[in-house]
Simulated scan of single mutants.
Amino acid sequence: MQVDSVDQLPGFRRRFRITPTPECVLSQVEDDYHCMSVTVHHDGIVATRIHADLTRAPWTTCPGAPAQIEQTFTGVPLLAFAKRADKKTNCTHLYDLALLCAAHALNKEVLVYDILVSDPIEGRRSAELRRNGVAVLAWKELDGNIVEPSEMAGLTVWTLNPWIESLDPALQEPARLLRWGAVLAHGRMIPMEKQSDASRMPANCYTFQPARAVEAQRIVDVRDFSDGTQQPLQSQGSV
């Protein structure tokens, strides 16, 4: 059966909302596995104070991550956030939220990114990113390989970096967010018991660092926003 829109398919949903004000900027994200936020207070040039909050996170060790992100970025110039090279020692999601804060701190309007990735059906999967409700990036996959659009054919979510770097700067941020969302969406297809041993994971985030990975326990609080009952961040205030 032909399906015209990813909205009609079950799958992963993720929403970012970035809300700037004159003295601070708030970035929020919610998806199947996470609900968290970062607020960056600033003087227009430097981050004077950072506050991170975890409403929903997948590991018992995650609550220590806000202190780490606050330490990483407090006192850092907004233009230097993206140059920090310690993403793997932080919660990667909080880190990305902090970068979004810095990138949009001086904006005047709220920015919303929606990421929709369908569950695979006979090896086919669709991924789409919308900016303030308008689709700006999309691709289709077959057995893990991108087949549409033609200029991306043969790439995978793991080999997208050169393509992202070739894009217009205005598209690079949404492309990175869509790529990461497509990676996270794979979790819907992996049985929970096979993704609940942190000690077997690469040391790519705060919880998966060796000292914490051995004690981390999985928190099973997974939402399915594609069932139509609620949208990500619907229950979270914007300020």
Rank of each mutant, 00 (worst) to 15 (best):
Q2Y: 06
D4T: 11
S5L: 03
V6I: 15
D7K: 12
R13A: 05
R17D: 02
R17L: 14
R17W: 03
P20C: 06
P22A: 13
V25N: 05
S27V: 05
V29T: 07
V29D: 02
E30T: 04
E30W: 01
E30Y: 08
D32H: 12
C35Q: 13
M36N: 04
V38W: 00
V40K: 00
H41I: 05
H42K: 07
D43I: 06
D43G: 10
G44A: 09
A47G: 14
R49Q: 09
L54M: 04
T55Q: 12
A57Y: 01
P58S: 09
W59P: 06
W59E: 08
T60F: 12
T61C: 06
P63A: 02
G64F: 02
A65W: 00
P66W: 00
Q68N: 05
I69D: 00
I69H: 00
I69R: 00
T72W: 00
F73C: 05
T74N: 13
G75F: 08
P77S: 11
P77W: 07
L78V: 10
A80D: 15
F81E: 05
A82F: 04
A82E: 13
D86T: 14
K88G: 04
N90F: 01
H93Q: 12
A102G: 14
H104C: 07
L106G: 07
N107P: 04
K108A: 11
E109S: 12
V110I: 15
L111M: 14
L111C: 07
V112R: 03
Y113G: 01
Y113N: 02
L116M: 11
V117D: 02
P120G: 06
R124G: 04
R125F: 10
R131W: 07
G133S: 10
L137R: 02
K140V: 10
E141D: 13
D143L: 11
G144D: 07
N145Y: 15
V147T: 15
P149Y: 07
E151L: 10
M152S: 03
M152V: 03
A153D: 06
V157A: 01
N161C: 06
P162V: 09
I164D: 07
E165C: 06
S166Q: 12
S166R: 14
L167T: 12
P169D: 08
A170Q: 13
L171C: 03
L171W: 07
Q172W: 06
Q172R: 15
Q172V: 05
E173T: 14
E173S: 02
P174G: 04
A175M: 13
R176M: 02
R176Q: 13
L178E: 01
G181F: 01
A182G: 10
A182Q: 02
A182N: 04
R188D: 08
R188L: 15
M189D: 14
M189F: 05
P191C: 08
E193D: 15
K194F: 12
Q195N: 10
S196N: 15
R200H: 06
R200Q: 14
R200A: 11
R200P: 01
M201A: 12
A203E: 08
C205W: 01
T207S: 13
T207F: 01
F208W: 15
P210N: 05
A211P: 04
A213G: 09
V214T: 13
V214Q: 13
E215R: 08
Q217G: 08
R218A: 08
R218P: 05
V220E: 14
V220S: 13
R223N: 05
D227K: 11
Q231M: 10
P232D: 10
L233Y: 02
Q234P: 09
Q234A: 15
S235M: 09
S238H: 10
